[in-house]
Each structure stands twice: as structure tokens, then as C-alpha cells.
Design a protein around this nucleic acid. Structure first.
Length: 488
RNA sequence: GAGAAUAUAGCUCAGUCGGUAGAGCAACUGCCUUUUAAGCAGUGGGUCGAAGGUUCGAGUCCUUCUAUUCUCACCA
């Protein structure tokens, strides 16, 4: 590194600006290769980072990498002159250069750029890890790949330079979000923004991050969900609203959880959860086709088909199917015994709904690899969902499970302000008993409902998990640029 | 929060029974005008994650700490 600092000074002394302002780029690596025609000496101007250098005395080959890929450059002393060639010899892997020249094919058949002039665009002072690759029978073999996961996450910029598949994943993530946004927008729904700093957090069962507003001298929370604000907008008269939202939950970290994560929430007036299931099927299928060109993805070693319709089964039926026990009509005590028979150790504080959720999460969910709508949850587990139109004690709610993990959560939204108040107040009681994930009574939200909210279907989709599924990535850290790590 | 594993050169990794630190690539110096893991000859490069301890002597054994990875718990 010391050497490179000296080189930078040396270049400046010899009249080369190591950090010029701009360079006129006319094309990119993959376009040159794609549109190459042998008879043609097409003039090009291209820029990128030097990734390999092969010096052979008075001529050299090197590869540059731009945002699309790599291309080989041929540089000959006779063409660029003694001074320029001497400057070239001072360059390092990692430096960013601009080249003007023309396209040609080498003796060994590689489409390349014959440089006529080149210009240093940015001097790199730190060596980047070099991964060399070789074609063996058409397969790319990579040697000495930059693979230390901690460094890859801490210094994602290097990961992106050195490991092209990482870049591809994030490009696909962007395409997924762009497609979903277009999907929602063309249906006529409005993209909105709601507060991240909230005086009362709500909309989910989770522990929040707290922060403090100095001027107002008040405690604020980073949102755990945006549900209650979006429903206020439905009260306000919008037919459909959605928000791609960073949410924050103060909980453990593993390969499915990051403390900040992205969720899209959607609320559409006059619809119910049955309608929403169709929307989810259509959305997943079309997104997969749009970004992958196929409706099948491979995740954790399983082929998953996203072709509608997805299987639908009630949570009670799913437990009957996978555990062979019937939970229908059982009270808390009976459910507790059932769970014990299945071998589950349960906290004595949790109620009937939570017991069902535990049984489901332990024995059913991991087995649901193909996309499956689990429907009709116990009311107790779902304080914001509307009572089922025909089944007592049950709400109109579904979760979509795929690859053994929850991807979406949705319900026919509860819009009876009196019932909603009762539900939140019983949450408050759970809270007093020590359940720090129980919800808080949000008086303004209840006031909004009292003015009248139309029937409404709501949906939340975990974007990170959806990207994992569609990209075949097995860790959430591989679909978030900068996953949370402890400080170095 | 619990358990297991890992931490050695810029990167990827060896390092035997405790005896003065090794390789490939990268870097540096030569040679080389169509190479592609370019080649050939030579050179330099280390607080062995941190702090203690045992020992004549520690990369290696012991203790504590830190970070990461994986699994489990909580959660989406």
C-alpha cells in the first residue's frame, strides 16, 4: 500500500492526474462482445477497473471490469508511445482506467479492444483480492476466491467487485421490487410513505427499537410495521395504498432475520382475504416469470413451483394432516396436553392461540415447501383481523408459506371499531401480564376506525425472503447489501 | 440467550510431538510485441485475533476476552 501512495505521487509529479473529473464512455464490455463483427474495426471508448494484467515486455493484455462484465484490452508500445506505455506499467490491478481504441479478435479468438489511448481515471491505493479464473471444459474454475464471509459483508464493495454473482443477486432484487411496484401501480393503487418514527408502535407483535426526540423531549419508536398508518389512509378515502417499508424489530439475528428488513404492505378497500390470495398468486407467478423467466425456483435443494393456484388449507386441517391430531374445539388446557403429547415444551403463560401457532411452527411449517396458503387462524393470534364470516373464534387470515418459511401475512381487516377496541384492550392486559410483544392501544387509530373504514383486505410481504426465494439464496445476509454486524 | 467451529502474509490456505514462520496467487526487480490461472529468473513481505498463564522455549498447551460462521431458542 505504501508503494501505491508513492506511485500516486510519482504520477502526479510526472503530470498525470490520478483522479480526473470525467471520461466519455460510449459503450460497455458486454455490448462490445455482443455486437462484435469480425470485419469491422469499431471505434470504442470504454472505462472500468483493471482486474488482470498480463505484461509481455512491449505489449500487454489486461482485463477491465465495468458494471456489466469484463473485456480484454490489448495495449502495444508502438501504438500508445513510450511515455504512455511507461505510465501504463505503473498501473495496478484495481486502478480504474478509460480506454479509446477499436474492437478486434485475438489469435485465440477473444473479442478485445485494441487501445490507441488510455487514461488513468482513479488510482487504487489498496490491493483488491484477486480471484483468478480458468476455463476447464467450458466450466469456470475460480482460484483463491474472496470467500471470508465476515469481510464480504463488512466490505461489500469488495465483494461486489470480486464476486460477480453477488452483483447479479442485487440487480435481481432491484428488478423484483421494480416489478412489484409496477404491478401495484398499474392496478391503480397509490404508493405512499408513512412515519418510521412513531410515538406508538403497532401493527405486529414484536419488540421495537426506541429512540428519543430531543426538541420534543419524547420517546419515539422505530416502526415494527406500517399497518395502522396505511389503514388510516384507507379511512381517508384511498381505494388502495401500498408502501415498501423498512421495518425494525429488536430481536435475534439469524439467516432468516435481520434487525431492519423490508416489507411491502398493501391495503385495498372493499376486498377480502379470498380476493387477496388471488392477487398474491398472480404477483408471485408474474414476478418470477419477469425476473427468472420461469415459474420454478430452486431453494434449499427443492424445486418450488410458483404456478397458481397454490394449495389452500386451514391451520387446523394442516395440523391434522401433519400431526394426526384434531385441535378443533379444544380449550387451552386440552391444547396444552396435545402439544405435550407431541413433545413440545411450552411456556405456561401462553394462551390457546399461541399454542396452536407453536404446534404449527414446529411440525407443519418446515414441511411446507411448495407455496401453501394457511388460512383461518384463531382470533386470539390476530388482533387486527376480522372475525370469520361463518366460523366462530376464527379470523379471515392467511399466511403464505414457501420453502418452509412465512412469506406473506394477510387478512380481511377488522373495521368494527368497538371490536377492535376490545381486542387491543385484551392485548394491553397480556402486556401487563408480561408479554412484551403484545400490542399497545392506539387511540388515534381507533378514532380513525370510528369514522368508518370500508371493508378492506391487507397484505404484508417480506421482501428479503421473497428475494431469497427467487434468487435461491439461503441467507438473508446475501440479499441485504449491508447486513447487521457488530462493530469491528 | 445456549452450544459447536473458526481467526496464521493483501487473498486462499498449510504448519507433525512445544524447538527461531511456509506455499500458491498478489507485490517488487529483470527478460519477453496476440496473452488469458501468460511464461522464465530473482527479491521482499508476519504483533500467528487480543490479553494473561504454564514452560528454558508457545502459532501449537491452559484461562479470559473479541469477532465471525453454523445449529438451537425468540421472531418475519
Amino acid at each position: 500500500m505504501q508503494r501505491r501512495y508513492e506511485e500516486r505521487l510519482h504520477l502526479m509529479e510526472s503530470g498525470v492526474n490520478p483522479y480526473p473529473c470525467a471520461f466519455d464512455v460510449t459503450t460497455c464490455s458486454v455490448d462490445i462482445i455482443e455486437f462484435f463483427q469480425d470485419e469491422e474495426r469499431k471505434p470504442v471508448s470504454i472505462a472500468g477497473r483493471i482486474m488482470t494484467i498480463r505484461k509481455m515486455g512491449k505489449a500487454s493484455f489486461f482485463n477491465i471490469q465495468d458494471s456489466k462484465g469484463r473485456i480484454q484490452i490489448y495495449l502495444k508500445k508502438d501504438d500508445v508511445g513510450d511515455t504512455a506505455y511507461a505510465t501504463f506499467k505503473l498501473l495496478d490491478i484495481g486502478d480504474i482506467v478509460g480506454i479509446k481504441g477499436y474492437t478486434f479478435r485475438t489469435k485465440t479468438g477473444e473479442v478485445s479492444v485494441h487501445a490507441e489511448t488510455f487514461e488513468l481515471l482513479s488510482k487504487s491505493l489498496r490491493p483488491i483480492p484477486i480471484a483468478k479464473e480458468k476455463d476447464v471444459d467450458g466450466q469456470k474454475v475460480v482460484y483463491d476466491a474472496f470467500s471470508d464471509k465476515e469481510m464480504r459483508y463488512r466490505q461489500r464493495y469488495i465483494d461486489l467487485i470480486v464476486n460477480p454473482e453477488v452483483r447479479d443477486t442485487f440487480i435481481k432484487r432491484s428488478a423484483i421490487v421494480a416489478f412489484m411496484r409496477q404491478f401495484f401501480t398499474t392496478k391503480g393503487w397509490l404508493e405512499v410513505e408513512t412515519p418510521i418514527l412513531q410515538p406508538i408502535y403497532g401493527g405486529a407483535a414484536a419488540r421495537p427499537f426506541t429512540t428519543h426526540h430531543n426538541a420534543l423531549d419524547m420517546q419515539l419508536y422505530l416502526r415494527i410495521a406500517n399497518e395502522l398508518y396505511l389503514k388510516r389512509l384507507i379511512v381517508g378515502g384511498f381505494d388502495g395504498v401500498f408502501e415498501f417499508a423498512k421495518d425494525f424489530r429488536n430481536e435475534g439475528i439469524d439467516r432468516f432475520h435481520n434487525p431492519e428488513f423490508t416489507q411491502v404492505e398493501l391495503y385495498v378497500a372493499y376486498k377480502d382475504y379470498n380476493w387477496m390470495m388471488k392477487q398474491v398468486e398472480e404477483l408471485l407467478y408474474r414476478t418470477s416469470i419477469a425476473v427468472n423467466g420461469t415459474d420454478t425456483v430452486t431453494f434449499l435443494g427443492s424445486d418450488i413451483s410458483l404456478k397458481p393456484p397454490f394449495r389452500r388449507i386451514t391451520i387446523a386441517d394442516s395440523i391434522r394432516e401433519y400431526c394426526g391430531v384434531d385441535i378443533g374445539g379444544k380449550n387451552e388446557q386440552e391444547l396444552r396436553l396435545t402439544a405435550k403429547d407431541l413433545g413440545l415444551e411450552l411456556d405456561s403463560k401462553i394462551g390457546a392461540g399461541k399454542i396452536i401457532d407453536e404446534i404449527f411452527g414446529e411440525f407443519v411449517e418446515p414441511k411446507l415447501i411448495q407455496p401453501t396458503f394457511i388460512t383461518d387462524y384463531p382470533t386470539e393470534m390476530s388482533p387486527l383481523a376480522k372475525e370469520h364470516r361463518s366460523k366462530p373464534g376464527i379470523v379471515e387470515r392467511f399466511e403464505l408459506i414457501a420453502g418452509g418459511k412465512e412469506l406473506c401475512n394477510s387478512f380481511s381487516e377488522l373495521n368494527d371499531p368497538v371490536v377492535q377496541r376490545e381486542r387491543l384492550e385484551s392485548q394491553a392486559k397480556l402486556r401487563q401480564r408480561g408479554d412484551d410483544e403484545a400490542m399497545i392501544v392506539d387511540e388515534d387509530f381507533l378514532r380513525a376506525l370510528e369514522y368508518g373504514m370500508p371493508p378492506c383486505a391487507g397484505l404484508g410481504i417480506g421482501i428479503d425472503r421473497m428475494v431469497m426465494l427467487l434468487c435461491g439464496q439461503e441467507s438473508i445476509r446475501d440479499v441485504i447489501f449491508f447486513p447487521h454486524l457488530k462493530p469491528e
